[in-house]
């Protein structure tokens, strides 16, 4: 089994896609959890998923500049339409998780681990 793309991952983990439906063929490489924007700017790598509870527009700029694979908003926090429009413009995938950050990260961690194990 190759690495799953965002479409498969979103279906498997029950995330909801809020923007960037057409970009779900991206293949994410790991994930990063943080609500501090400079932390993400400094430490996250391109093609990572970013798990956060921040829902203001600057997260789109950070994801775009760092070329992240997707933003995962936790706790089903409501996201303004304006943010999603900007995300579409800048080709940013925004996903929504109905779980808190800890559980969301745990699910993703196990998912990526399962993919690694099934390869060997």
């Amino acid at each position: 089994m190759g690495k799953p793309n965002l479409k498969k991952l979103t279906e498997d983990l029950g995330f909801e896609c809020l923007s960037g439906e057409a970009l779900l063929d991206r293949i994410p490489q790991s994930a990063y959890v943080s609500d501090l924007l400079s932390d993400v700017m400094g430490k996250a790598h391109a093609d990572m998923m970013w798990i956060t509870s921040q829902v203001h527009k600057n997260i789109v700029a950070v994801a775009s500049l760092k070329e992240l694979s997707a933003i995962v908003i936790v706790n089903e926090r409501p996201v303004e339409k304006e943010l999603l429009e900007q995300a579409e413009d800048e080709e940013i995938v925004v996903l929504s998780s109905n779980l808190p950050a800890f559980e969301t990260a745990g699910k993703l961690y196990n998912y990526f681990l399962g993919v690694e194990n099934s390869k060997s």
Binding site: L37, S38, D39, M41, G42, T52, Q54, N58, I59
Partner: peptide, 15 residues
Amino acid sequence: QMGFGAGMGLPNIKR
């Protein structure tokens, strides 16, 4: 509260 002001901006620029 917006997730700025972590005191990492200038170090990030330096790095």
